[in-house]
């Protein structure tokens, strides 16, 4: 039995220790905002925030997160920071098919948490593990820049 903090609540998973966290989150905790795009750590759709850092949940075995803190889009969307990102993404139409978006939002949070005033290159590097096939990334990069400006003091 592995216990960890999931979106601020202590939970215990009965899954096997070698089970990918992605499956645990989707199947056991019904957090369908965590998307499976490749299951090989190559697309970022399943990204969560693990102990304060972005992590592809398909690449994390449950047994490695005993006592850790996990935040998914379901937990993050209740925050004030999310609201700023939400408005920024909406203002430039950065959401198309939406499949990369939960991971992309959490990547955005991690960029801004580390550096509230990122350069364009820092934003690009910060989302470089989150593939998007719809937007060409322009709108997403722009949205993160807007959030940085609008969210002064939040990050």
């Amino acid at each position: 039995m592995i216990s960890f903090m999931l979106n601020g609540t202590k939970v215990v998973s009965t899954a096997r220790a070698n089970e990918p966290l992605l499956n645990v989150l989707r199947n056991e905790f019904h957090l369908s905002g965590v998307k499976c795009g490749c299951n090989e750590g190559e697309c970022g759709a399943c990204a969560v925030i693990l102990d304060g850092r972005l992590a592809n949940s398909c690449m994390v075995a449950l047994g490695s997160i005993q006592g850790s803190k996990v935040i998914t889009i379901e937990g993050y969307r209740t925050t004030e920071r999310f609201t700023v990102l939400d408005m920024a993404y909406a203002s430039v139409g950065a959401v198309q098919c939406g499949f990369c978006i939960p991971g992309m939002i959490l990547a955005s949070e991690c960029i801004l948490a580390k550096n509230p005033n990122p350069t364009r290159a820092e934003i690009q590097a910060g989302i470089s593990g989150n593939l998007c096939r719809c937007t060409g990334y322009n709108a997403i990069v722009a949205a993160i820049g807007i959030a940085a400006k609008e969210g002064q003091g939040l990050w």
């Binding site: 957090l31 369908s32 965590v34 889009i73 909406a90 939406g98 978006i101």
Partner: peptide, 15 residues
């Protein structure tokens, strides 16, 4: 431009 119809459900992971 306006906020897209499907924006809220997608960005929040609810779609």
């Amino acid at each position: 431009a306006i906020k897209k119809k499907d924006h809220d459900s997608k960005i929040s992971g609810q779609a």
